[in-house]
Simulated scan of single mutants.
Amino acid sequence: MARQSISLTEPNDEWLKAQVENQEYSSKSELVNDLIRQARKQQAEIDWLRAKLEKAESSGFTNDTKDQILKEAKKLING
């Protein structure tokens, strides 16, 4: 695993410490990795929606119903 050194603002460092002290996570590293995983998943969802919108815009319409798009979005969000 790659090792990194980062600087945090005091409020962010205190928040990280509190999460570890509350036993939400076993270490700051675990928490930071989880936050990055969440951000990556969120970016994938945004990218999927953007691609869907671009396809619809370029074609002038989409054959997918609103319910189909929502179903696909929920499937992506829930993994």
Rank of each mutant, 00 (worst) to 15 (best):
M1V: 10
A2L: 14
A2D: 13
Q4C: 08
Q4Y: 13
S5V: 08
L8K: 04
T9G: 04
T9F: 03
E10S: 06
P11K: 07
D13E: 07
E14Q: 12
K17Y: 09
Q19F: 08
Q23H: 11
S27H: 00
S29F: 01
S29Y: 01
V32Y: 02
V32R: 08
D34P: 01
I36E: 02
Q38A: 10
A39F: 02
A39T: 08
A39Q: 09
A39V: 01
R40N: 14
K41H: 06
K41T: 07
Q43D: 13
Q43T: 08
Q43W: 14
A44P: 03
E45N: 08
E45G: 14
E45P: 03
I46W: 03
L49F: 10
R50S: 12
R50H: 11
R50K: 15
A51L: 11
L53W: 01
L53D: 00
A56H: 07
A56G: 06
E57M: 05
F61W: 02
T62H: 11
N63Q: 06
T65I: 04
T65F: 03
K66L: 14
K66M: 15
L70M: 14
E72I: 07
A73H: 02
A73G: 03
K74Y: 09
K74T: 05
K75T: 12
L76T: 00
L76V: 04
I77Q: 15
G79H: 08
